[in-house]
Amino acid sequence: MSRNSVCFSAAGTAAENDIPAISFHNVEKKYKINRLFGTAELTAFKDLSFDIMKGETAGLLGLNGAGKTTIMKLIAGLIFCNEGKVEIFGKSPLKPEAKSLIGFLPELPYFPPNEKPLNVLKYYGKLSGLKEPYLSARANEALEITGLKPNQEKKIGQFSKGMLQRLGLAQALMHKPKILILDEPVSGLDPIAIRDFRNILSAEAANGTTILLSSHSISEVEKICGRVLIMKNGRLARTVQKEDWEKDGGLEEIFINEVSDKGREK
């Protein structure tokens, strides 16, 4: 099966192997908030720097408002940073060449209830530059990967939350992205759906896909990720490697210590 021109080989070019898949360099992001008189600025984060290397599976942890979704939106090119630089394999996330490398799953996206999943996947596949006959084959493959194949004749309106989330993942996988950005991918899913999701992500990671996911489920992040970035009040509080949380009694303990008041005193 031939790949479309917008897709890249799993191995990547030599240059891509040398540079981080995702790079934040002294990034500052401010939001404007409308007030009764004029506007006010809210700083989501300042001087944020980190790299996610090719093939890495990294997690973003933090309390609500810590800046996790903002990081994901910056990577997906949905918002712009005020200062600093965000790069996807050395390219600006606003450029189409960078966007074709990314598969993005926002938290609980909407899909038209009267459509069948295959049509939705084909639509998003076309927007990613895929062409027939590869498009149909890949849409079917994405349904297979995400376990939606038995439900492909159902309309999306009949889907459960877990099935909708699988469809969300399928649209993100359509163009075989090199980077998967997943915002709360297991939120509200039952244990079986979570396990299936974990298996899909493990398979993607084994194929060399770089994964960045945010979640409130520490146990899931612990199982899936090799490294975790803990965000607190708009700053990177700590980066923890898998071996660290395995050695220090689990990720939950480390996370609570970092984000709690006790952690602040430290």
Binding site: V6, K73, A76, G77, L78, P96, E97, K99, S100, I102, F104, P106, E107, L108, P109, Y110, Y124, L127, S128, G129, Q171, H175, I181
Partner: peptide, 14 residues
């Protein structure tokens, strides 16, 4: 609200 715009603009669609 429905995040459909995210699914389009996160793709290589100017």
């Amino acid at each position: 609200q429905e995040k459909t715009i995210y699914l389009i603009l996160s793709r290589p669609v100017p």
